[in-house]
Design a protein around this nucleic acid. Sequence first.
RNA 1: GUGGCUGUAGUUCAAUGGUAGAGCCAUGGACUGUGGAUCCAUUCGUUGCGGGUUCGAAUCCCGUCAGCCACCCCA
Length: 417
Amino acid sequence: MLSKPPGIEDIFPDRIGIRNLITDTARDVFRLYNYREIIIPVMEFTEVFVRGLGTDTDIVTKEMFTFEDRGGRSLTLRPEGTASVVRAYVENGEYNRLATCKLFYAGPMFRAERPQKGRLRQFNQFGAELFGGGDPYFDFEIIAMMDDIAKRTGIDDYTLLINSIGCPACRPDFVKALTEYYTGMKHLLCRDCASRLERNPLRLLDCKQDSCQPLKKDSPKITSFLCDGCRNHHESVKAYLSKSAAAFTEDHLLVRGLDYYTRTTFEFVATRLGGQNAFAAGGRYDNLVETFGGKPTPAVGFAAGIERMEILLEERPVPAAGIDLFLVHTGGKTLERAVSLCSMLRREGYSTDLDPGTKGFKSQFKKADREGALLAIVIGEDELSAGTCTVKDLKSGEQTTVRTDVIVGHIYNKLGR
RNA sequence: GUGGCUGUAGUUCAAUGGUAGAGCCAUGGACUGUGGAUCCAUUCGUUGCGGGUUCGAAUCCCGUCAGCCACCCCA
């Protein structure tokens, strides 16, 4: 039997309800905040992600699905959305002339990682990007928007973490202090942290090894290294949040894996998710547009993992989507009558189904019930010759006989639509 | 990429190295034109795959593939 590749899912109808709940809610909230949808390609020239995410990031060095097209150019299935949105924004002369440009996207992303809970090779994200907004209000807006989406979908057990990682002017001082601090205790570091010290010292701060926890206590704090601009920005973002419904926790150990972030970073985390505890994250990236050849444009954005949100909503009841009508017949002429009636009722806007097989009433009613039909409409020999239908309300069990030529009006009265 | 655990019917799971079973689901019947509750019956397997040990392997060993969980890292 053929099977799907590892880390890639088939999503059957029983999961579509919750999936739509999440994406519909996100779309509603995006609209409330005046964000408009952009549909970005599922693949890009590899260079888009290399330049966008940073040459040394894990995603670029080992997690991309990359292949050559027939002309020998390197293409990559998108591992995230921001790089593509920035590329599209810079490439499009009309949108990048706007003072501010608010966009959102949704769709599948691809990363060649080992699958585990809340981590797939093909997974879905929605996210938003705001270009041309350097004011701390916009950081707040992006964060508050995701907070609204989480609350509206029914996710309640989560924590919003925020931090500032400074800018190219002040971060190097912090990284230098951090490197010096940890170099002094190199012999105490776990193996991963030893290599972090070389590759990406910021990541030392969120090591999960028990042995590394005590070392963090006296490590340099980013807050004492922020330049005036970054500090004021950070305070202002917090002030906005404090006046809003979004409760947050400041976490100076929060760093992000992608190179493009400046100043604000944030994460929505939930312990129920297990090892991969973030279901949404983002931050400010004031230099990325320039990196893509655009004019200097401050920007801020976020992305959310739809499958991770689904895990958090597992217990939430989603109303089962049933059909309106199921036609029951006895075969032959009654089936012909049922088929034409079925077409007519569908044209009238009622979701309607029937079983063309010549099975007994019992199995047809059983099927009607399993399909969640509200009404069963029986056309047997008696009804056919009398020009009537028997309409049974499957909830109450109540049954009435009506003339076929007024069936639509009868259904309308029963269903109220 | 690294590590741990697990692979048996559509599904959830049993079976001391000795004839592969049960619940649920599905289908049919009790109820010949009426669903959901109850009762009864029926179908379903190269025990993931390939080797090895053994008189004999679902069971033990090796390999492989897949799934789950964790690390790295990320949504």
